[in-house]
Amino acid sequence: MRELFERLGRMAVTAVTVTGNMFLILAQAVYFIFIPPYKLRNIVKQMEFVGVKSLFVVILTGSFTGMVLAMQSFNALKRFGAESLVGPTVALSMARELGPVLTALMVTGRAGSAMATELGTMRVTEQIDALYTMAINPVKYLITPRIVAGLSMLPILTVITDFVGVIGGYFVGVTLLNINPGVYIGRTVDFVNVDDIMYGVTKSFFFGLIITLVASYQGFYTTGGAEGVGRAATNAVVVGCVLILVSDYILTSIMF
């Protein structure tokens, strides 16, 4: 019994410490965004890693999600004779919810784990200590570029996901389910607002921050050798995904 309470207490302390550390890292990383010199090359490299290299997987996910959405909503809407609403359904779901969230989850799986692994390896092989002894702030050198990359690339990936999702939905709706193409596009344009897209894009800013911050934190504070690196990668994905879904709920309730 006592053991249980002790364990709960330890967990609570750990949770608070982790949160505190994460915010400290965030504060430092954000502070360094504004402090020259800027290591543009580093930022560009991370942008390429987070953004360009996630493109394929994001396009794949986006288009298939759009196609499935079209098919599913067609089945449901057919019963009301409202097949014309397939377009808006696909576009609104993609823009407001699925675009940002799916993109964030895919990027977490691909880039978040890789980031944690890279930083974890640097930690256990003392590369981070080496940076420090060379009078280079490791947060500025390693974490700031990653967070900047996350903040800037996730919105763009989200826009691409939205777009291919709508294209996927259009393909299924018009060519397979025989919805009139003019009606499909017309209804979509009628029902979707610029705000819908912007809400999704705004969300993705936060997701970009969460993904890179969590992965950086997990990697940066890795302990325990190769096993620790593996744990960091796993944690980066699990904690990242959970935080994305939780914050998605919070952001949705604030924005709508």
Binding site: T121, T125, E126, Q127, D129, A130, T133, A135
Partner: peptide, 17 residues
């Protein structure tokens, strides 16, 4: 500034991969 006067060789060399 003090650190710039130091150099350090780590156990595993700690070269950037």
């Amino acid at each position: 500034e003090v650190l710039k006067r130091f150099g350090m060789l780590f156990q595993g060399a700690a070269l950037f991969d």
